[in-house]
């Protein structure tokens, strides 16, 4: 479009609409503005105040506890022992570090699988088809269902002697597996349960992302003879980047904190050999089973820093900082 670049100086343009409105309605517009600001804060303060109250004091409390030798009771005369709890945690190769690795292993494995499967399914469901509504309804159920109930349901299915899973595996000649009953299979099994429950969430998120993409770039690529894989790899995937990373952050944070399913199926400590003990389960046990409040708080502080670091890292990769 040809534009009169010479005439386009700030002085030549007519005043912005807002300014004209102000001059026309004069005084009222100004009080409007003030009233709006007051209203804005009046409406926002209760929510923000509530969340802040519920979070700021507890975090300071936990931070404070992490520097003490609190044991058995949080309000007894606890002595400050500096960073001893943090040193204890970070040098503990029996419970702490294995829990860290299990958390990382569980999260990375489950979220990666969910993302790949979820993206594949979203691509399949991208173009409308008959029964779309029914499929979406089915996909909604696992992600809305109660995690404890999900845990129980998989305990039944994966029961080593009476479960349907081993029964079905028998048909294809695979020997019975221990699943949640074994030390080595517990965490991978929990990962697969997580994948079952949350792949649909990934699909729903990515479908929403796909529906916002413009069609032109893909059509242009089609004209240029790009095949399906090329269009996906070089056109769709880059455009989907923001949604993909947001989905990764949301799911990643929840996966890192997974508790209900692990606790419901494996019990305290993630099993007798701690085989499914992630950081959250470890911190829970330290707190409520052993009353090691000082050490538990230190673990929780480290865990929080860990999660925040991952979120910041992922969000930086989106190239945007706003929420």
């Amino acid at each position: 479009m040809p534009s009169p670049t010479v005439a386009e100086t700030p002085t030549a343009t007519p005043g912005p609409p807002a300014q004209r409105a102000t001059t026309r309605s004069g005084r009222t517009a100004l009080t409007f503005e003030q009233a709006n600001r007051r209203l804005k804060w009046a409406l926002l303060t209760p929510s923000l105040g509530f969340v802040a109250l519920m979070i700021i004091f507890p975090l300071l409390f936990t931070l404070n506890l992490s520097l003490t030798d609190a044991f058995g009771a949080v309000n007894a005369n606890n002595a400050y022992i500096g960073l001893q709890n943090f040193i204890d945690a970070l040098t503990d190769t029996r419970r702490f570090w294995p829990a860290v690795w299990r958390t990382v292993y569980f999260t990375v494995g489950a979220v990666l699988l969910q993302t790949v499967l979820g993206l594949a399914l979203a691509m399949l469901m991208r173009k409308a088809f008959r029964g779309m509504e029914i499929v979406r309804t089915i996909l909604m159920v696992p992600l809305l269902a109660t995690p404890v109930a999900i845990g129980i349901l998989w305990l039944l299915i994966l029961d080593p002697t009476n479960g349907i899973a081993n029964h079905l595996l028998g048909f294809v000649g695979i020997p019975p597996q221990e699943f949640l009953g074994s030390v080595s299979q517990s965490l991978p099994t929990l990962m697969l349960i997580d994948v079952w429950q949350w792949t649909p969430m990934m699909t729903i998120l990515l479908l929403a992302g796909l529906s916002t993409l413009p069609e032109e770039p893909e059509e242009a690529a089609l004209m240029d003879g790009a095949n399906a894989w090329q269009r996906f790899r070089y056109i769709i995937l880059p455009m989907l980047r923001t949604t993909l990373l947001t989905a990764l952050v949301l799911r990643g944070v929840d996966a890192l904190k997974t508790f209900d399913i692990i606790y419901a199926t494996k019990g305290p400590g993630g099993g007798s050999g701690f085989e499914a003990e992630t950081l959250n389960v470890y911190a829970y046990g330290l707190t409520f089973d052993y009353q090691e409040y000082g050490l538990a708080s230190a673990v929780l502080v480290l865990f929080t820093i860990f999660i925040v670091a991952i979120v910041v890292l992922l969000r930086r990769r989106t190239g945007r900082t706003s929420a």
Binding site: I55, F57, P58, L65, V253, V301, I307, V311, S322, A323
Partner: peptide
């Protein structure tokens, strides 16, 4: 209020509430 008077940072606070492990709040609560 946030949607109409655009205060983009509020979203970050929402995210903070999602990030913090609930166990670290449970003992103080």
């Amino acid at each position: 209020a946030v949607g109409r008077f655009s205060m983009g940072r509020t979203g970050s606070l929402v995210l903070v509430a999602r990030i913090v492990p609930a166990i670290s709040l449970l003992v103080p609560w």
